[in-house]
């Protein structure tokens, strides 16, 4: 065995050499921080280092779950995920179905290109536009005031609208882009199926119901399972850019809370503990969903 390994090392020495930079980088930037997670169970002091800091057991986890922040951040994370899923998941499918029915190739191509456009605007710029448009004297406030006579207000500092703003702007940015995968699935449906449906006397509506929808169903199921598996992994960029203490109540999620406590307030151990809990729950969810998916659809991640 060892002999064979030595032969293998000699024969593939250049190929293995090529893997060395990646291995070294991963050890430094991924595996060392992984070990440093132990500070979640310690009271980390920069002067004492990871080794020297005293153990505190599960103290930080108890602190988090004993505080009002646990309920608030977990609730916000779950709600933002759930609403994004309910509203954000079906829309790319609908868009793809509509694009698929357009019989003027040029029109279809133009609409598609236009629908990808928001995806290429950077997150910071999208948030900058939102901030201007949603300001007290901004576009939205003025329009709502003119049309419905509602009092002017700064929508971004109203906690009631924060989640809606985050989710709606996310959908605006990604619906076109996310429709690509469904369009690909649609274009791989066998055209003969449509022909035989036509011979059977099916109109366009019934072709959609009996050929198109079953054709993309596998893609829909796989993506749905993946989305459910990452329900606790909310994208924090936009929230970090747009939230204020006025909107923490509805907008503060686990990821933003970790950033605020860990980096701004330097409560390193405490936020590492919350981060660890978050990662583990995500991992567990992914495993469960993957197992479920393997059993029911035969599709899985690994």
């Amino acid at each position: 065995m060892l002999h064979r390994l030595r032969l293998d090392m000699r024969r593939n020495r250049i190929a293995y050499l090529f893997a060395v930079p990646a291995v070294v980088l991963l050890i430094i930037f991924s595996y060392i921080p992984m070990y440093d997670i132990v500070i979640a169970f310690k009271d980390y002091k920069p002067t004492l280092g990871v080794f020297g800091s005293p153990w505190v057991g599960l103290q930080h986890f108890r602190d988090f779950f004993g505080s009002i922040f646990a309920g608030q951040t977990i609730r916000n994370t779950l709600l933002i995920s759930a609403y994004s899923f309910v509203f954000g998941f079906p829309l790319p499918i609908l868009l793809a179905l509509m694009l698929n029915e357009v019989r003027f190739p040029k029109y279809k191509r133009v609409v598609q290109t236009v629908s990808y456009m928001p995806y290429f605007i950077s997150t910071v710029v999208v948030c900058g536009i939102l901030k201007e448009f949603l300001a007290y004297n901004g576009l939205v406030s003025t329009l709502v005031n003119n049309l419905f006579g509602a009092a002017k207000q700064n929508y971004l500092s109203n906690a009631r609208y924060f989640r809606t703003i985050i989710i709606a702007s996310d959908i605006w940015q990604s619906v076109g882009w996310n429709s690509i995968i469904y369009l690909a699935a649609l274009s791989s449906i066998d055209l003969e199926l449509y022909d035989s449906a036509k011979i059977d006397g099916a109109g366009r509506f019934r072709q959609i119901v009996h050929v198109t929808l079953p054709g993309i169903l596998p893609t829909v199921i796989v993506l749905m399972i993946l989305t459910v598996g990452s329900i606790l992994a909310v994208e924090t960029d936009k929230i970090l850019l747009l939230y204020t203490p006025l909107t923490y109540e509805t907008g503060d999620v686990i990821g933003t809370f970790i950033y605020r406590r860990g980096i701004k307030n330097a409560q390193h151990s405490y936020s590492t503990a919350i981060g660890l809990m978050n990662t583990l729950v995500n991992l567990l969810l992914l495993f469960l969903v993957n197992m479920f998916s393997k059993k029911t659809t035969g599709e899985s991640l690994w």
Binding site: R4, L5, D8, M9, N12, A15, Y16, A19, A22, V23, L26, I28, F29, S30, Y31, I32, P33, M34, Y35, D36, I37, I39, P46, I258, Y259, G262, I263, H268, S271, T272, G275, L276, N278, T279, L283, L286, W302
Partner: peptide
């Protein structure tokens, strides 16, 4: 395809996709 360390290497890399130190340990490092 014939390299013996191929599988362990793949695991070594893929593991970091699913588990990591997270924001704070990386920041401290």
């Amino acid at each position: 395809k014939n390299a013996m360390l191929n599988k362990p290497l793949l695991f070594f890399m893929m593991f970091t996709m699913y588990f990591g130190g997270g924001l704070i340990p990386t920041y401290l490092l």
